[in-house]
Every structure is written in C-alpha cells, then in structure tokens.
Design a protein around this nucleic acid. Structure first.
Lengths: 168, 168
DNA sequence: CTCCATTTTCAATCATTCTTGAAAGTTTCA
DNA sequence: TGAAACTTTCAAGAATGATTGAAAATGGAG
C-alpha cells in the first residue's frame, strides 16, 4: 500500500470509529488528518483534503478545540490560523475520557439522584425494586466515574499495570 | 415524584444515554423498560408502553437478545413470547463491554495492522512518523482490549479495588 | 394438513443530524 | 480609516438512520 493510500484509509477508519461511539464522522476524520499530518493545517487544507465545506471544516475544528484535542498555531508572516493535534495517544485517550466524563457521566449521576425521590411507600415492592435498580446503577456509574478520574491522573504503565495484575 | 413518572423518566434517561454512546434510542428505552419491569413483557407490552410499532419493538428486542442483555421467557398456556432483562448491573456492564470489544475493538486492531504494510522507504520521515502513530494507537488499543478482558473476568470489588489503589 | 396466533421482514416514509455556502462579522495593516 | 484576508454563523437542503405497517413467514394445535 502506498503511504498516501494508507493515510486516507486511516482517516476513514478513524471516522467510522467515531461514528460508532457517538462522535460526528467528519470531526473524527479531521482529528485523524491532524494526527498524521507532519505540519499544522489550515482550514483550507482540511476542506481540500476531506472535500468538505468551509463551514463544516470550521465548526469541526472548533469542536476539536473544545475537546482539547487540537490547538491553534500561527505561522510567522501569515494571517491564517493553523491547527495541530496532540499526538501522544495516551494523552488523547485521557482527554477524551475527561471530556465525556464531564459532559455525560456527571449529568447522569445528577439525574439518577433525582429519580430516587419518589412518593410511594417504601414497603411497596414495586417501588422498592425500582429504587434498588436505580441505586445499583448509581453505584456502578459512580465507581466508573472514579475509575475515569484515576485514568486521567495515572501514568499509562501504572494504569495498565494495575489491570494486568488482576489477570494473574 | 410518582413512581410511574419516575419510571418514565428513567426510560427517557436511559434512551438519551444510549444515543450519546452510539446506541439506538429505542433499543436503550426497551432495555430500560425491561430493567425496571417486575414481570417479563411481551412485544405488545413494549409497543404500548413506548408507543412504537410492532416492527420496531420486534427488531429492538431481537437486537437486545444479540447483546445478551435480555432473554426469552415462556408463560405456561400462552403462545406469546415474553422477555426479561438481566438485572445485575455489573453483569450488564460486562456484557456491553464484551460485545463492543468483539464488534469494534477487535476489527479496529485488525484494520490497524493492515495499515502498517506500506511501500515507502522507512528512512522517509513522513512514512516513519505515520507508522509510529499507527503503532502507538495499536499499542494503546491493544492494552485497552486486555483491560476489557480483565473487566469481563473480574469481580466488581476486585476491579474497582485495583483502580482505587492507584489513587493513593 | 389447515388454521390461526404470533413473529419477522422490508420498502416506503419520517425524523434527526450533518453539511453547505453565502452573508455577516472580525481582524490586520497600509 | 478602508479594504482585503480570514473566520464565523445559520437557514435551507442533503444525507443518514430510525420507524412504520402491512404482507409474508413461521410454528403449534387440532
């Protein structure tokens, strides 16, 4: 396979991966493109390489900045904005985890708490079962939330090291 | 809040959660419904409680069976099929992890391997950088794959226990 | 085997999300 | 300050994914 072909495959792969995890395909492709680009890219470069509109390129670059996955970079004597990606993959994984935690896990925990405030008599079996289910979910989700905290703070080798030990 | 209201909120919450993780909203709602239903439910029950068509209910129940999250159950003297959910949340988490691993992580690892087979001279810096990126991703994804294996096999307290230790 | 209750399929339709592109906004600098 | 270079916005249209519902298939009982 040629390098150019492999790079194109890679952006497609990353895009498809994003799709199945609830991430906009184009956003994932823009991310892929910057991950494997030796030089920072401008909005126009992205438009051209992925054949998307200016609006689309701009909005996805902006979103990626909100995820802390890419940064602006300025070139001397050029008014255009260029973008470069964080290339340390463990760092990338941590930032995605951190952001999903903030956007999804924490609101989920808050919503689950609201559901435990029900009128019914607790001796009512149906109410009791429901509360138990909600509490169990709350417990597991809270533990996962802590696990993500650990992941965010841990070094790669320590994190996977601790997990590998469990297999023994 | 009334119990019935809380249950409805719960199915909506679970549905929204599914959406943001790449899971069909209705499928997640059907799952929620079965999680909090004391009795097994028939396709008609699901149709009625979620106001969806027969085809939709049927297809999502079938999908949930493929995820090993729900089971068929037969009632004596009744030809209808009834469905009940696995209610142990840690077990549910493990099965979802197992299935996503099988469907997504493993194919991803296979695709990454294909990308390392490129023609260019390895002294070419661009090719070298690309290969390094692909290999780094490969390494992290493979470690995550093992982590999921561990999760699938571990007891809840052991798994989270090992992670909690890292915080100290 | 036939009937009928039940489940499954799938083409058409609908809903949601993504994308476009042109207009408005902003920044830089001569 | 004016004008060019560049970025952002957003309403309309396109694409994708979900849902419907009726017809076909299935399978158990008599």
């Amino acid at each position: 396979m040629k390098l150019s072909e492999a790079k194109e495959q890679f952006t497609k792969l990353w895009g498809a991966l994003g799709s199945s995890w609830g991430i906009n395909r184009t956003m994932a492709q823009v991310h892929a493109l910057l991950l494997i680009s030796p030089e920072p890219l401008s909005t126009e470069d992205v438009m051209e390489q992925l054949s998307v509109s200016r609006g689309n390129a701009n909005m996805n670059l902006r979103d990626l900045m909100n995820w802390n996955l890419i940064y602006k970079e300025h070139k001397a004597g050029d008014r255009k904005e260029y973008f470069k990606a964080e290339k340390d993959i463990w760092e990338v994984a941590k930032r995605i985890a951190k952001e999903r935690k903030r956007r999804e896990i924490q609101p989920l925990i808050a919503s689950l708490n609201l559901l435990t405030d029900i009128d019914e008599d607790k001796r009512n079996t149906e109410a009791k079962d429901f509360l138990e289910m909600v509490n169990n979910i709350h417990t597991v989700v809270t533990k996962m939330d802590s696990a993500v905290d650990t992941l965010i703070k841990a070094e790669e080798h320590k994190f996977f090291g601790a997990i590998v030990k469990l297999l023994k």
